[in-house]
Design a protein around this nucleic acid. Structure first.
Lengths: 245, 245
DNA sequence: CGCGAGCTTGATGCCGATCAATGCATGTGG
DNA sequence: CCACATGCATTGATCGGCATCAAGCTCGCG
């Protein structure tokens, strides 16, 4: 929370979308080779964001979207009175900054939870290119729409689930996304604190901690601080689906 | 919840965007006259949706966005185990259906809370046209981005506010939007039940009702069933801003 | 007029917040 | 290498806000 040095390192390397191992998860999905080449000319630079630093803050001028290349982020909004809500966690291949399009200013903070790198996608150039390529246009629309759908899912969680259900849903979502990226769905290291999980799920950190312990007692998980092993994914799933209602 | 007759009435009249009194709130915002004419050729038909009927349901094929011309809608998502969450209320000039873009299927139900009319906007034609007109493209992106930002605000509400704060925020949002449309911000008729408000705010209907009563006792509102008069908007605002924390 | 959907209000109980203490890992300086 | 500080996690005890259960009430409508 104190003033951060905020070193903005722009990497000189070009990292072509066309040769990126995330292209099937990210903006390039569905593009032809020549479209990809054009996208490459647009996404020229990476930026490193050390753990704990912000990629952008609420109020910052909006210019670009950012694709997570490596690392892990959280986004959080805050109200005038210091209330504060984590609205999402982003991992490789996911886009950051969509919130800024509407007002030309960012409306949330994006904070790296581990040393990370993002690709910078100048938005107005992206708009130009997506007027040329309907495939790119469609992919951008898809990504924005899916963000809306995801948000609706979080509303459902926050509005109608109880603590255990929320945490189970959270863990299943996380393991699912890790699996998509080729990681083990059963063994994971949380990049965020109990407090950040709690903020995202509308719970206090003590409740998150207690619920982890309960899952461990019930044989669903093995919990060692941030090291989690999922022992019974099906059990978590039945929790999410209105266990005992 | 029983089977509905679902009469799909397509109105023969053309209602040009260019002459619509909502054009400053809706998709046409910021378009030039010749752009508006082209949009008119695309948005050819209206559809009437009687109170209680659905405009679309979760799982329906996605083809079009819908702009509310008159009336009032709710959207709600539901999980496999009949849990159910109202994700928004839409009034004149607001768009419905953005959720369907990502998967080509709608992911929520849109239900008319009073007799309503919507303009049908065939989405793929809209995409075509927005590749021609960057103004239209920008407006579409703005609308989607603002929906994301709105959703983040709801998350903040659901994740960190208490019942009184939630209801106060809800009422202020509603009156703000009515004011934008030229209605009195102090006198309003709720189109939705206590249960629907509760679902949106993550509360039970009894809590909503009690909180209305409390606001009335405190001199903030006058409540007669669904007829609400706001007596002290500033008082509601201070409630939202962490009253006594 | 009587029925039913929706709203209000009261009594009670439970889930998760709050307050508080302890534990555990990491890092820093003597 | 130890002593100590710091940040995060765990666990217990207690409290309170909202859910739940249960009556009545209001109003519109057949």
């Amino acid at each position: 929370m104190s003033a951060q040095p905020q070193p903005i390192r722009i990497e000189p390397f070009k990292v072509a979308c066309s040769s990126c191992n995330l292209r099937e998860l990210c903006l390039p999905l569905g593009l032809s080779n020549d479209q990809l080449e054009r996208l490459d000319t647009l996404v020229e630079t990476r930026r490193s964001v050390p753990r704990g630093n912000t990629l952008f803050r609420s109020g910052d001028e909006f210019n670009s979207l950012y694709a997570v290349r490596t690392g892990f982020f959280k986004t959080c909004v805050s109200s005038e009175d210091g209330r504060d809500q984590v609205t999402g966690f982003q991992m490789a291949g996911e886009l950051l900054g969509l919130d800024g399009i509407g007002t030309e200013r960012h409306t949330c903070d994006a904070v790296a939870l581990e040393d990370s790198q993002v690709c910078i996608i100048p938005f107005h150039q992206l708009e130009d290119l997506s007027r040329e390529f309907s495939d790119l246009q469609r992919q951008l629309h898809r990504i924005m729409s899916r963000e809306i759908v995801r948000d609706h899912g979080v509303m459902l969680l926050l509005g109608s689930m109880r603590a255990e259900e929320r945490l189970a849903a959270f863990l299943l979502n996380l393991t699912q996304r890790l699996k998509t990226r080729g990681f083990s769905p059963s063994s994971l290291v949380l990049r965020m604190t109990r407090e950040e999980i709690g903020s995202y799920l509308g719970l206090k950190l003590e409740t998150v901690s207690r619920t982890f312990s309960k899952f461990q007692d019930d044989g669903l998980l093995e919990v060692k601080q941030r090291q989690i092993r999922v022992l019974d994914a099906a059990g978590l799933q039945t929790l999410v689906n209105g266990s005992a209602c």
